[in-house]
Design a protein around this nucleic acid. Structure first.
Length: 301
DNA sequence: CGTTCCTCCTGCTAGC
DNA sequence: TGCTAGCAGGAGGAAC
């Protein structure tokens, strides 16, 4: 479930606890955590030895650590949390968690970074850093270090300077598919998952199966604005809980308990009109919406 | 090409 | 009470 706000909380934890440190030894356990690193887990561990962590970056749901290898070559360690990934900062002597897939020991005597992932949809890979193809020719300044080559297909998220709302609206107007499918497409706008998609659609009073191209530009603009707002609010709720030496995705956001209006609220009253929230199958997932505020389209887009 | 569908995975829960 | 089927869903790649 980590979407943009939860991943940003983790990024801030990494910035606080591992940036500036030198990786002494990395270990990867099992075949899946490094599956996107094609040379394999042993190669990945070898290449990380002696690297200094310069910064912790994020685009959408992707994290990466900017590293400088002992030979001076900069590179990015991509980290995706998938469905259930957690990064923990703990003493090396702490008992190993079930589903511990990676450990990082540092040249200092400080705590260890661990990657724990029950469902193994998450993973790590090393990539070269390249100029960001999404930075417009005028406007946002490029990142100091560039972005990992293997995630250049991921679009900017609504919280970064490179986000170009007019360009995104133009692409949404060209999509002849359901608008919810469009805003979940990380190559079009990144960071939004099923939860925040449902919340943004509820706020915008748009049913997710309405055709993307058939919505007006102002309506699409409002939808994007609501997506940005709901993720910012979640970030504000969740951004205070990592002062301990423990970066916990699941504990990152109290937002789920209090502030969701549609997602996971099947049968409970719509906070706006009181109608019971409905749940529908969509894209082999669940979609939650208000039947009165978000009427279904006559024809599926 | 744009769009849709399937698969990876494990823990939890509803229902027989 | 114990089993199984169903559900949760991010993202890449196959399939249409």
């Amino acid at each position: 479930m980590p979407e943009l706000p939860e991943v940003e909380v983790v990024r801030r934890g990494l910035q606080e606890h591992v940036v500036g440190r030198c990786i002494e030894t990395a270990g990867f356990f099992g075949a899946r955590v490094a599956r996107r690193h094609l040379p394999g887990p042993v190669d990945l561990a070898d290449r990380l030895h002696g690297n200094v962590i310069h910064s912790a970056e994020r685009r959408g749901k992707y994290l990466w650590l900017v590293l400088e290898a002992p030979d001076g070559h900069p590179q990015g360690l991509i980290i995706h949390l998938g469905m259930s990934g957690q990064l923990l900062v703990e003493a090396a002597s702490a008992p190993h968690e079930a589903h511990l897939h990676a450990t990082f020991d540092f040249a200092d005597d400080g705590p260890q970074l661990r990657f724990v992932d029950r469902r193994t949809f998450g993973g790590m890979a090393l990539a070269d850093l390249v100029p960001d193809p999404h930075v417009p020719s005028v406007g946002a300044a490029p990142r100091t270090w560039g972005i990992p080559e293997s995630i250049t297909h991921i679009a900017p998220d609504p919280l970064e300077p490179a986000f170009d709302q007019r360009a995104v609206i133009a692409r949404l107007k060209a999509r002849h598919t359901a608008v919810k499918r469009s805003i979940l497409d990380q190559g079009l706008i990144s960071g939004i998952g099923n939860i925040y998609a449902d919340e943004a659609l509820w706020r915008a009073q748009i049913h997710g199966e309405r055709e993307s191209a058939a919505l007006s530009k102002p309506a699409l603009g409002r939808l994007i604005g609501h997506a940005r707002d709901v993720m910012l609010e979640a970030l504000q709720h969740g951004g205070t809980s990592f002062d301990a030496l423990y970066v916990n995705v699941n504990g990152a956001s109290g937002y789920f308990d209090r502030s969701l209006n549609a997602y996971g609220r099947e049968g409970r009253p719509c906070p706006r009109c009181g109608s019971p929230i409905r749940r529908e199958a969509f894209m082999n997932r669940s979609s939650h919406s208000c039947p009165r505020c978000q009427p279904r389209p006559r024809t599926v887009g």
